[in-house]
Design a protein around this nucleic acid. Structure first.
Lengths: 204, 204
DNA sequence: ACATTTGCTAACCAAATGGTTAAACCATAT
DNA sequence: ATATGGTTTAACCATTTGGTTAGCAAATGT
């Protein structure tokens, strides 16, 4: 039962690599640790992925492709801004609670290598803001929300949603929360954040 | 002019180390590169700081001690919440535009080693939220702002202010901005962010 | 003037690390 | 049964890396 490629080795490697790269980053990750976690010989990593760099890129693209749909959801559907914001906040927070390493991994590695995002932009499905901007303009015209720059609003939305996962250790320390109370705190943000945003932009 | 300790070698090392650690992180930083940037022999790094770990900690504490006062300013003075938020947003954004690597460095390294923040908490001057919470409670009582959890408000404030520096490559890609337009964009946030927050919490 | 201390460097070292190689293994086709 | 070809491993390799050592050179104390 050893050689039939029975339990897709390639995928086991990718999973182990995900695990290690996402918690330690490119520089902190060790090929040996990935091999150990995958339960195989180190040479197999190179057999399937040629180099650390390529294995890393496979993991990174995979991770990024999990995020893009989340963003496209809010950007490209036809619902009202209020619904977009509510749904995004709810979905994104739920999703991130299941993948807590993801935001930090993406942000950290993009900062390490700014050019890297250019490769991603070529991919189909890279988030595009045009439709979101139109919707903002439309609702401003209709007097439903106060005038605000769409880019600024977009950054505010993702900042409020992503930061709790990026700055977790910092926030835990500042607000004196332990793991459990922090989880409750983030859970509350599923509605708290969208209320906060909508309150700010709704015309009163 | 070689041996008189004339231009404080220790400080030159710390500056070079800051430079390298803050842009590459603990794992990505190389002692040799720090030595080169400081214009000295690698052995001197150990002569003054004993190990990579200790040199890193010196840099980290130094960096963190630049941030704490910024936070304490908003937390501990007696002005109104509105003024706190306005001043903090303005000051913090200005400061970070001058030290753009700082937020990412702190966040990244705290995520790499969660226990590390415990050491910092012992330090005097570690930000404390008590006074801020009192102020929030007070203004809610007086009907000046709508009811909101002080911790959530605090996280919203720092999220909106810090995220543009953490997620810069991502935001640049999403909003199609180059270096120059991104700078203008962040500059605008000096007032945009405080308006956004105040709009959300002010009682109408 | 001489000894001692302090700042500094070149050379070196052991361990870790990404990557390679040659050979073994094993399922399948002939 | 035997050859074939993808899969896997143990052993190995070159380089990098954090760290050490022995000794030099300038300043300082006596």
């Amino acid at each position: 039962m050893k050689k039939t490629k029975d339990e897709n080795t390639e995928e086991q490697i990718l999973n182990a690599a995900k695990n290690v790269f996402q918690s330690k980053g490119m520089d902190g990750a060790r090929m040996q640790e990935i091999a150990d976690k995958a339960g195989i010989n180190k040479a197999m990593l190179h057999y399937y992925y040629r180099s650390k760099q390529l294995l890393f890129e496979a993991v990174f693209k995979n991770a990024f492709s999990l995020l893009a749909p989340q963003l496209n959801a809010i950007l490209n559907d036809d619902s009202s801004l209020e619904d977009k914001i509510k749904n995004f906040t709810m979905d994104y927070t739920s999703f991130m609670m299941k993948h807590p390493y993801l935001p930090n991994f993406i942000i950290q590695e993009l900062n390490r290598n700014e050019d890297f995002i250019l490769k991603l932009k070529e991919n189909t499905g890279f988030p595009n803001l045009e439709k979101f901007k139109e919707k903002v303009a439309e609702e401003i015209n209709q007097g439903m929300i106060r005038p605000i720059d769409a880019d600024q609003l977009f950054v505010n939305i993702i900042a409020l949603n992503i930061f709790p996962f990026l700055g977790k250790p910092l926030i835990k320390a500042f607000t004196n929360k332990d793991e459990k109370t922090y989880k409750t705190f983030v859970e509350k943000r599923k509605t708290e954040v969208s209320n906060f945003i909508i309150n700010s932009i709704k015309q009163h």
